[in-house]
């Protein structure tokens, strides 16, 4: 089942002759349990695509549907609720609140959604435990390493019943070992049924995805969706 659908999405900034087109006629469908990577150089429209998919920005034309519900018909309140309950965001610079512990950061989206503090805290701890971070629950962001901060950010993005995970260069500030750990966590979330989109210019990250879409000047110019059961590698292990 498709949890995220983008149909003919275009986005322009400004009007008339000075208008800048950021995205043109993008179609994207991400099924439950699937990981899609969007690759492209700076300025190709990757991040704009992600913010539109996450209802943080309106497209100039086209339609976005999340978990079967079209965003066009939704009120601002409904969209805000959708962002709190259904969509998880991961950013390059973590965006953890410095005055809250790891567990409080993870529980925050639930508390904002009206879940009681006790239940939100329990869910936060469970999300941290699931990602091997139980022993970091009481630490503040400045007491965590970069890799741990991003893992806490991923725990926050999947806490509760999130169905869609949107990540913008999630390992951009990390070394390759931590970057790999982050991708494994995103993949684990997919195995639990989450539909994930990762925007990146990093081929290592993209190679974890089921499908890779290449953007150039706001257009999807190519994609890779190999049959991974049919390896062409010249090694007996393949």
């Amino acid at each position: 089942m498709s949890l995220l659908e983008l149909h003919q999405i275009s986005k322009s900034y400004g009007e008339g002759p000075t208008a800048v087109r950021a995205l043109a006629e993008i179609d994207l469908s991400v099924d439950e349990g699937h990981l899609v990577a969007i690759m492209g150089p700076s300025g190709s429209g990757k991040s704009t695509l992600l913010t539109i998919a996450g209802s943080l920005e309106e497209p100039t034309s086209g339609e976005v549907a999340i978990d079967g519900a079209s965003l066009r018909a939704m009120s601002r309140n409904d969209k805000a609720r959708l962002r709190r309950r259904t969509i998880g965001y991961v950013f390059q610079d973590f965006n953890l609140l410095p005055g809250l512990t790891a567990a409080e950061n993870v529980a925050l989206p639930l508390e904002l959604d009206g879940v009681s503090a006790r239940k939100a805290h329990q869910a936060g701890l469970a999300a941290l435990e699931q990602l091997g971070l139980a022993d970091r629950a009481g630490r503040y962001p400045d007491q965590l390493s970069g890799g741990e901060r991003q893992r806490v950010a991923i725990a926050r993005s999947v806490v509760g019943e999130r169905k869609v995970l949107l990540a913008d260069e999630p390992s951009g500030a990390l070394d390759s070992t931590n970057g790999e750990a982050v991708m494994r966590m995103i993949l684990d979330a997919c195995k639990r049924g989450v539909a994930a989109v990762v925007v990146t210019h990093d081929a290592h990250l993209a190679s974890w995805a089921d499908r890779v879409i290449f953007l150039r000047d706001g257009r999807a110019v190519d994609h890779v969706a190999p049959d991974l059961s049919d390896s062409s590698l010249a090694t007996p292990r393949a």
């Binding site: 290592h204 190679s207 190999p226 991974l228 390896s231 062409s232 590698l233 292990r237």
Partner: peptide, 11 residues
């Protein structure tokens, strides 16, 4: 190249 990288990553 990305296709090849996907195959290696899957291994």
């Amino acid at each position: 190249l990305i296709e090849l990288m996907q195959q290696w990553t899957r291994l």
